[in-house]
Simulated assay, not measured.
Amino acid sequence: MEVKLWNDKREREMYENFAELYAIIKATEKLEKAYVRDIISSSDYEIECHKLIAHFKTLASTLKDTVPSIERFADTYKMDCPAAINRLVISGVPATVEHRSATAGSATTSAAIVAECVQNFITAMDSLKLNMVAVDQVHPLLSDLSGSLNKLTILPPDFEGKTKMKDWIARLSKMGAADELTEQQARQLHFDLESSYNSFMAALPNDGT
């Protein structure tokens, strides 16, 4: 006999988000162990860790009413993931960024801005996937992203991400707060974000700073 976990679309989305949160925590735990055991390079670890932290923050914000405590969520589902909880909930930045903070102030500043840019890129893309397409939802995300990109001095003034975000912000500013992007607009924005993110990652120096 098949047992249904949900009774309506809202419940189904909630359980799907629970599953994604579970997967992010598990993946982070494995990534942390791989880094500690020197199975993965520092640069690869940092890139993947930035992505997981950004995904986690977006999802945790979406689930804040149903999952007020990540630690309790982990206990409920018997997840033995102390390294992931520390990285996602307590630290909020990759171990490599933490380590640099003790040795190089200027490098840390740059690394922190890179981390901020990555987080803002992924938060914006994740929000579109979650159908958060109202102007008052999208505009702040793009403004945060644009601001973080402008703080990173290694990027040229005509960097693709800067110009595209500026164009989108200008377009959104002409719309009402409650207006929503059409499906075509949302798809184009996601494409522009993904393209800009790839260009951003390609523009970073090899040492990640």
Rank of each mutant, 00 (worst) to 15 (best):
E160T: 13
V118N: 08
S41W: 00
N86R: 14
S106M: 02
H139E: 13
S146L: 08
I113G: 15
D179W: 08
Y35I: 15
D126A: 14
W6D: 07
Y22I: 13
A74H: 12
S196Q: 04
K164P: 01
T108A: 13
D44W: 01
V138D: 09
L149E: 03
Y197H: 11
D192G: 02
C81E: 04
K151W: 01
K51N: 09
S195M: 13
L88E: 07
S148R: 03
K162M: 13
L63C: 13
R100P: 01
A177C: 05
V118H: 04
E180D: 09
I122G: 02
I39Q: 10
H55T: 07
R12D: 10
L52V: 11
K151R: 05
N198T: 13
R12V: 14
P82M: 09
V135A: 07
I24Y: 02
A84C: 03
A60V: 07
E29R: 00
A83Y: 14
I122D: 03
L59C: 06
E180T: 14
I90M: 06
E98Q: 10
L142Q: 01
S106A: 02
V138T: 15
V114R: 03
T109L: 06
L88S: 11
L88M: 12
R10H: 04
L31W: 01
K30P: 08
F121S: 05
M1E: 07
V93T: 12
G147F: 02
E71L: 04
A104Q: 05
E32S: 12
I39D: 09
P94D: 05
D75G: 12
T123M: 11
M175K: 12
S195Y: 03
I25S: 03
V67E: 06
D44C: 11
S42H: 06
V3R: 06
E13P: 07
K129F: 05
V135F: 10
E20N: 05
P68H: 04
V118W: 03
F121Q: 03
E46V: 10
T103P: 09
P68N: 04
R12C: 06
L52Y: 08
F159N: 06
D75S: 15
M79F: 01
A115V: 10
A112W: 01
G208E: 04
I40V: 10
T153H: 12
S127K: 09
Y15P: 02
N7I: 12
N17R: 11
S196P: 02
I40A: 04
A102P: 00
R187C: 09
S43W: 00
K9R: 08
G92H: 05
A54Y: 02
C81Q: 01
A115W: 00
T153P: 00
A60E: 04
E29S: 12
L189S: 11
F18D: 04
H190N: 05
H190S: 07
L172W: 12
S110V: 06
F191D: 15
V114L: 09
F121L: 05
E29V: 08
Y15D: 11
G92T: 07
A83E: 10
E20L: 09
G161Q: 09
S195T: 14
V135Y: 06
A107M: 13
V135G: 11
K162R: 12
R10S: 05
V89K: 02
W168P: 01
G105C: 08
S106T: 09
V133P: 00
S143C: 12
S110D: 11
K151I: 05
S69K: 02
Y197T: 05
A111E: 11
F56G: 01
Y35A: 04
